[in-house]
Amino acid sequence: MDIQELNLLEEKARQIRKNIIAMLKEAGSGHPGGSLSAADILTVLYFKEMNINPESPRAPERDRFVLSKGHAAPVLYAALAERGFFPREDLLSLRKTGAKLQGHPDMNRVPGVEISTGSLGQGLSAANGMALAGKLDKASYRVYAMIGDGECQEGQIWEAAMFAAHYKLDNLVAFLDHNGLQIDGRITHVMSPEPLDEKWRAFGWHVQIIDGHSFPEIINALAQAREVKGKPSMIIANTVKGKGVSFMEDVAGWHGKAPKPEEAEQALAELDQRGVR
């Protein structure tokens, strides 16, 4: 794999993580854990994989990304701003009255947000609709989605899982951000959705399991998903909640809590000083 490209992705991921911390500190609330766990995947999607143009965010042939785990809005906003969909300065308006950057993504306020999400379990269905529309129109675009592992406790996820396989939506690739934590603790303690790989396979999906913080693995999985015909693709990405900030890593308490100014400072310093990987 091209070392220059990897370095570029590394830098973008670092910037996205720093933006997440800066936004949440400024907002005083929000969801750092699941934003940081998803940062490397979104980096690859927005800076390598997807056919998108910030100048023309509604171009019919664009690839689409649906953040079904909408509470990770900060990572989506950070990626969109970094990719040029709106000015970086806007990031600091997150969650403020009148801001376009709502606590959860609003498609009508933010260029590049494909569907409004936030209530868990619903985004994958919308991604199905987009992928189906692509099939009906014989369009070449691809649809990407990200769901959470806790989100797999929602029944609608499995309705959507059945649907995508039944309608052979091979233009759909979903990531499962498998960070193992939800608000009340470990997913396996709260309500285990495991074994996730077997479940998705049984529902008719092509399933891959990767390290969700390894750029080569994310890139390879996406390449493999392109070769799959007649099935939707599920990429189960094993991740660390809070990845990149030592005191947030694998701590359920950082699901929905903003860092205090001194914590944010430490987090930003850590992200500057060392690589995430």
């Binding site: 269905s125 199905n128 609709g129 992928a131 129109d137 609608q156 959507a160 059945m162």
Partner: peptide, 14 residues
């Protein structure tokens, strides 16, 4: 539930 969400995605795609 999936029907409504799918419809939303179809509508978002024209």
């Amino acid at each position: 539930q999936n029907m409504m969400g799918t419809a939303a995605g179809l509508a978002a795609s024209g």
